[in-house]
Amino acid sequence: MDKTTGNGSRLSHSDPPTTGEEQTSIMVWKPKQVEEAWELKKRFGDDAKYISGGTLLQMQREQGTPFPGHLISLENIQEMNGISKLEDNCSDAYLRVGALTSLAVCKKDPLIQEGWQLLAESISDIASPAVRNRGTIGGNIVYGVGDSIPALLVLDAKVSWFDGTKLQVDSLWSYLKNFASNQHIITSLLLPEKSVSIQEKSWFKKVGRRESFIPSLITIAGYCVCDYDQMVVDIKLAVGGGSHHPQRLKICEDILYGSKITDHLLLEAYEAINAEFHPISDPFVSGEYRRTVAANVIVSELLTMQANR
C-alpha cells in the first residue's frame, strides 16, 4: 500500500482487499528428486516457491499474497517421506522423520509418542485436525516460526537439508540461526534417542488468545534432568510464538546447569529470562507479557522438581 505523504497529496489506489484466485497461469512442478527440485528453483528464482501440504501458502494467497508463477511441489520426493530408526556409526541412535510427514502422522506415530512425546504434544497444539492432516512437519519448521520448533529445540533435534549439491546435517538450533529463509530443502528431521532418567522432566506450553486453533502468543518448551542431589545435569529451554523466531534461553540454561535447584537459583533463572528474552509486542499483548509468562512457566515447572514441593 502506498504511504500517505501528507494532507492534500494525490494518491492513486488500485489495491482494494483481494482474496482468492487471482493469477490464472501458475505452473505446478512435481519433481521426484531433491536435485530436480533445486534445479527448478534455480531456474525460476523468485518466481518460484517450494510447496508441500500448502496450508500456509494457500492461506497467504487468500490473505492477499499471490502465488509466484511456479510452485515446486515436493510431495513426490520419496526420500522426504517416512519415519524410521537410524543408527549412525557411533553409538548414537536417531529417529528419522521425513520432512513430508504430515503433522497428524507425526502426532500419532507410536515411536514418536513413546520416545519423543514432547513433539507429539506440541503438534497437538498446532492448528486443527484437518489442517494437521495436510500440513507437514517440514513446513512447520521451514518458515522458522512453527509451534513445534521450541519442542524440537529442547529435544536436540537435527535437520538434514539439501544445499544444492549434497545433504547437510546440523542441529536445528544452528540451522535456524544460520539460515533465516527457506532457501534450502529440509529433507528430514533427526531426533536423538535419550537415555531415560528418573529425575527428568519435559514440558511444552502454548498460550494463545483462545484454548486451541490459535496463533501462539508464546510457546515454551523445556527439558531438565537432575541427579539425586537435585543437581541440574541437563537443561534445555526454548521459547517461541507468533512471528517470534524461537530461541534457546542459553543464559538461563547456563545458570541452572550444574547447580542445585533452590528458591534462590530459580530467582536467578527468572531474572535471566527477563534479561535475555525480548519478545515483540502486538495489538493483543505486550512483549512484557510474553516474557513474564515464559518465566512463570519455566520456573513453575522447575519448582516441581524441587524436593518436597
Binding site: 494457500q58 492461506m59 511441489s73 484437518a130
Partner: peptide
C-alpha cells in the same frame, strides 16, 4: 477461506481436510 472455520471440511483419502486449503493438483 483460510482453513480456520471448518465449514468446508471434506474427507480426502479417509482424512478430514479443509477443501479451501487443498488445490486441484493435490
Amino acid at each position: 477461506g483460510i482453513g480456520r472455520c471448518g465449514a468446508c471440511s471434506v474427507m480426502m483419502d479417509g482424512h478430514l481436510v479443509n477443501a479451501c486449503l487443498v488445490m486441484a493438483y493435490q
